[in-house]
Amino acid sequence: MEGKALSLRALSVLRPGEGGIVSVVASHHLAPKLVEMGLFPGKEVKVLFRAPFGGPMAVEIGGGYTLSLREDEAMLVLLDPENF
């Protein structure tokens, strides 16, 4: 388990084209909202593109729809890149 936790990556550091499976959503007042919008553990996500100048990123969720979130919002979502 410990080894796995170490290999998690925050969604915010991914480059366009990279993806993973949501593993944990960090505890934060925004967390319920993130989960409701589909970022629950087990969901596959992929970064589509990023806005210029360090703006928000567009993330494809499970092949169905696209969310846009700011970097500090994406930081709350930890992915398991191995299982992708």
């Binding site: 909202k33 993130l34 928000p56 696209t66 846009s68 979130l69 700011r70």
Partner: peptide, 9 residues
């Protein structure tokens, strides 16, 4: 505040 928003097709 937050942004978190859906981008429609």
């Amino acid at each position: 505040g937050f942004l978190l928003m859906e981008l429609p097709a």
